[in-house]
Computed example of a mutant assay.
Amino acid sequence: MVSGWISYYGRYRPWQLRPFLMRINAYLVRWIRQKYKRLAAKRRAIAKMQEIARRYPRMFAHWRLTVGAVMV
C-alpha cells in the first residue's frame, strides 16, 4: 500500500512525499518504544531503527527514500 502511495505522490505531489514518509517512521519509532522496554528512550529507539534501516534498506517500501535522511 505504501509503495502505491509513493508512486502516486512521487509523481503528482513530490513535495508532500517526504513529510508523509517521515511520519511513517515516527509511527515505527513509537511502536518500537512500546514493544521493547529497553528501547523506551526515544534516542535509543531512533538509533535502533536507523541501524536496522541501514542493514536492511528494503524491509519497508519507504526506507529506500528515507535511509539517508535523518529519521524522525
Rank of each mutant, 00 (worst) to 15 (best):
S3D: 15
Y56Q: 10
W5N: 08
W5V: 15
A40E: 07
R64F: 04
L17W: 01
W31H: 14
Y27C: 13
R58K: 14
Y9C: 05
A45I: 04
I6E: 11
K37I: 08
I32V: 13
K35T: 14
A26Q: 10
G4H: 15
A61D: 12
R58H: 12
K37L: 11
R43F: 06
G68Y: 06
W5K: 10
N25I: 04
L65Q: 08
W31R: 14
M71A: 11
N25C: 08
T66A: 10
L28A: 14
R38A: 07
L28F: 07
F20N: 01
L28T: 10
R58A: 11
M1C: 08
G4M: 15
Q50P: 02
Y36I: 09
M22N: 06
R64L: 07
G10F: 01
Y56R: 14
K37N: 10
A61I: 05
I52R: 06
V72I: 15
I46W: 02
R30A: 09
A69K: 14
R64M: 08
V70W: 07
G10W: 00
A47V: 04
Y36D: 12
L21Q: 01
W63Q: 10
R54T: 08
S7V: 07
I52H: 05
R11I: 04
R58I: 05
L65C: 05
L21K: 03
G4E: 15
R18K: 13
R33Y: 00
A47L: 04
G10M: 04
L65Y: 06
R18G: 06
P19T: 03
M1D: 13
R58M: 07
K37G: 07
